[in-house]
Design a protein around this nucleic acid. Structure first.
Lengths: 240, 240
DNA sequence: CGCTTCTTTGAATTTCGTCAAAAGGCGTGG
DNA sequence: CCACGCCTTTTGACGAAATTCAAAGAAGCG
């Protein structure tokens, strides 16, 4: 197991500390709380008080929001080098979603107060936070537009492509998505139901666009998927 | 009409400059570019380069994103004291949406470089920006969940309530929303069509929940609207 | 007063969620 | 090694919600 210490060079790759010098990074690393976490651990829960700034060094985290009615939406998957828990910073300090590890994960975190001190001393950090939040906001707005205007099939196509881009690696068969994805996960990212997601993915598999095996997705024809995401092709029709 | 000068006290009410002293505010006001803009003016367009930090002093602005297919979504309405154009800050400098005045509007803006200098000198400003972006992100995520899981009527209810909270002022009849809202605007914030929005609002008006006159909305029974937003009451049914 | 923009309303159509049920996989424990 | 149970996936049928199509009124503005 990794000891709770951290290589400052790992920080250099993080968006949060981009543009800082080595000595500064070392100071920041010294202040970090670093933890090795098991798979399926809940790092924080929706409504929890006491916001920290978190970052994934290795592994992955799923951010899920649950509504009063129990409906779940996956807000985001966090990979190495990305920060999370940012929304609550400097506001009411309550996390707006659950964060759960996708696999064994090495995580660093800082308290709000620490981050505040760091930002006061190194304004570049504040700029970085602003940049990160701006990017997330842009992404969220993009999703809002998708959900508001596009049909389920297109949204699923977008979601799969996004995942492939974010966490895909090439194999002989095509681009494989690293982590296991249940149909329900796909549905919860795409804003549809388990059933609709299943129908769509099955149709695509029959059409040879992708492979689905044991919760692993492999994209075989990204170009076609992109056509579906952008144009209006209906692959759910029987095809021979 | 207002000359292109600005009362520092107006800045004190802005989220962006909260917590700053009067002398500082005066300095910031001196650097601002202030413009009186006519109704329906496009302040910036999706894809434009050269991001500024903008703020509405008086009036209102509609932020609209348009997809490749021409579908429009209203990302947000900006009222007095709110900033906009924030997403593009410190990233690629390209605005991700159009900004159009809802009525005659007094607007202040600062270049990215100016804001950078101000933040370096007054770190509180950076904190404020982070807080604003965090809030916006939270709101966007909330909308994602809404769109992914709720029916049109509920979404419209939420949208109206949000607007009332954001830009409502009390009148004898109820809470009036400051800026003019076409049915299409309501539809585009709620993620539905002009027609559905019209049907829903008309039903509510018949039920006495709100008044709609000349693109002005007045909420008469916010409690009932909140019931619709949270519970599952169907006010579109004929009722006598 | 005519034109443009906005709103309302009806009817047909479609997508998608809901209900229901069965089949497939995988691991555990007998 | 097989049986059992749990979780996941598939599939069909149905219905409801909402978009689409169509058209007519209403209201503001020049």
């Amino acid at each position: 197991m990794a000891a709770p210490e951290i290589d400052p060079r790992a920080l250099a790759d993080m968006q949060l500390f981009r543009g800082l010098e080595g000595t500064v990074l070392a100071a920041i690393a010294a202040r970090a709380r670093v933890r090795q976490l098991p798979k399926d651990l809940r790092i924080f829960s929706q409504g929890d008080q006491g916001a920290h700034a978190h970052a994934v060094i290795d592994g992955g985290v799923r951010i899920v929001q649950t509504g009063a009615d129990g409906a779940e939406v996956v807000m985001r998957f966090i990979g190495p080098g990305e920060m999370f828990g940012t929304v609550a910073l400097f506001t009411d300090g309550r996390y707006p979603a659950d964060a759960i590890t996708l696999s064994d994960t090495l995580e660093a975190s800082w308290t709000e107060a620490e981050l505040l001190q760091l930002m006061a001393r190194y304004p570049q950090i504040a700029i970085n936070v602003i940049r990160i939040l701006g990017g997330r906001l842009q992404e969220a707005q993009h999703r809002v537009r998708e959900l508001a205007t596009q049909r389920a099939e297109r949204r699923v196509a977008h979601a799969v492509l996004r995942l492939a881009q974010q966490a895909g690696h090439s194999t002989v068969d095509g681009t494989a998505i690293e982590f296991p994805l249940r149909r329900k996960d796909v549905a919860d990212i795409s804003g549809t139901t388990l059933h609709t997601a299943s129908r769509i993915l099955t149709a695509w598999e029959k059409a040879g666009l992708l492979l689905s095996n044991n919760q692993r997705l492999i994209i075989r024809q990204p170009a076609e998927l992109r056509r579906i995401a952008e144009d209006a092709v209906d692959w759910s029709e029987p095809r021979m």
